[in-house]
């Protein structure tokens, strides 16, 4: 158990800088999720913490110790890879015991720890199998088991659930959360799935093009996005963006308004043409074309009347729900 600090961390591959100075302060036992679109540098950041990638500038410290020049094996971390990276020629037991054997842990203790992890992860029937004889979800659990038996100071996860089907993902998400709570190990978790980020994180970091746009508790980030990018990335369906001119206002920033805050009303601030709607059961998403042709979305309860396709409707919302962003994309 430990804290983890990144200070102005930068990373360049050759002449191109992909991480442009990131500061993160992870408290002992905290679960931090890094979320962002593909290619924004999440994996690179995680790999720098793991020691698999050199840090171009800035410092990474674990429990107050700068680890920039420290080899991965000396950092007291464990990592779960997207493709699990199990040792294909070893049994499940040996996969989990590998790190302990190298650390010269006494045999009875290895057996006890692996048995405990196997029990926690419901892997007991599979201990003698090879990875290729397991399902995706079971492999995922072995990868988790390999991480937890070593009792590291920090867990690192790189999209560990992205190869699983939707149902299993939800189940494993819950298991990871429970496990992390029980073990209380400081964790850094990378994903591009905002639902995972929202549900798992104590605090989440939204990354955009090598920069940490916002760090905060999930609901706070959702309610109070600091940049237009965060407003657009977090939340599904995404935030509607309007130009001030559309509302007869001056200025050249953007106004963001979440779909659940917009309603169809007899008269409102904006008129739009209904394009199509998606009835999802408990709720309905109504997609409309705004005055400038851009798509807008309204989220309403299933009981509400659905406008006909092509019908002209008025949209209304409370002004204090508006999120105003300056021309630089920052919150005004």
């Amino acid at each position: 158990m430990a804290s983890l600090t990144l200070e102005n961390v930068r990373k360049s591959f050759g002449p191109t800088e992909v991480i442009h100075g990131v500061d993160i302060d992870v408290k002992d036992g905290e679960f931090i999720v890094i979320v962002g679109p593909s290619g924004c540098g999440k994996s690179t950041l995680l790999r720098m913490v793991a020691g698999l990638e050199t840090v171009t500038s800035g410092t990474v410290s674990i429990d107050g110790r700068v680890v920039n020049g420290v080899e991965p094996m000396d950092r007291d971390i464990a990592m779960v890879f997207q493709n699990y990276a199990l040792y294909p020629h070893m049994s499940v037991f040996d996969n989990m015991a590998y790190g302990l054997k190298i650390a010269k842990t006494p045999k009875p203790e290895i057996e006890a720890r692996v048995a405990q992890a196997a029990k926690m992860l419901q892997l007991e029937p599979y201990l003698q199998r090879r990875p290729r004889e397991l399902s995706g979800g079971q492999r995922q659990r072995v990868a988790m088991g390999r991480a937890i038996v070593r009792k590291p100071a920090v867990f690192l996860f790189d999209e560990p659930l992205s190869n699983l089907d939707a149902k299993l993902r939800v189940q494993m998400r819950l298991e990871i959360k429970t496990l992390q709570r029980d073990l209380g190990v400081t964790s850094l978790y990378v994903t591009h799935d905002q639902v995972e980020a929202m549900t798992l994180a104590d605090r989440m970091i939204v990354m955009n093009g090598g920069v940490a746009d916002q760090i905060g508790a999930p609901l706070e980030v959702y309610a109070n996005p600091q940049t237009a990018f965060v407003a657009g990335f977090i939340g599904s369906p995404p935030t509607n963006f309007l130009a001030p001119a559309m509302l007869g206002q001056s200025g050249d920033g953007q106004i963001g308004i979440r779909p659940e805050h917009v309603r169809l009303a007899p008269s409102g601030q904006l008129t739009a043409r209904a394009a199509y709607s998606e009835a999802l059961g408990a709720e309905t998403l109504v997609h409309l074309r705004g005055p400038n042709g851009g798509l807008l979305t309204v989220r309403q309860d299933a009981g509400e009347p659905i406008p006909e396709e092509g019908a002209e409707v008025s949209l209304d919302w409370d002004v204090d729900r508006e999120m105003r962003f300056g021309p630089d994309g920052r919150r005004a």
């Binding site: 698999l52 997207q82 990276a85 199990l86 190298i102």
Partner: peptide
């Protein structure tokens, strides 16, 4: 796979151990 080697490195295996066991 590179990640298998990396996993071994994180598990504490240095070059020779990785070579011998993986």
């Amino acid at each position: 796979p590179r990640s298998v080697i990396e996993a071994a490195a994180i598990d504490g295996a240095r070059f020779w151990t990785r070579f011998r066991t993986i």
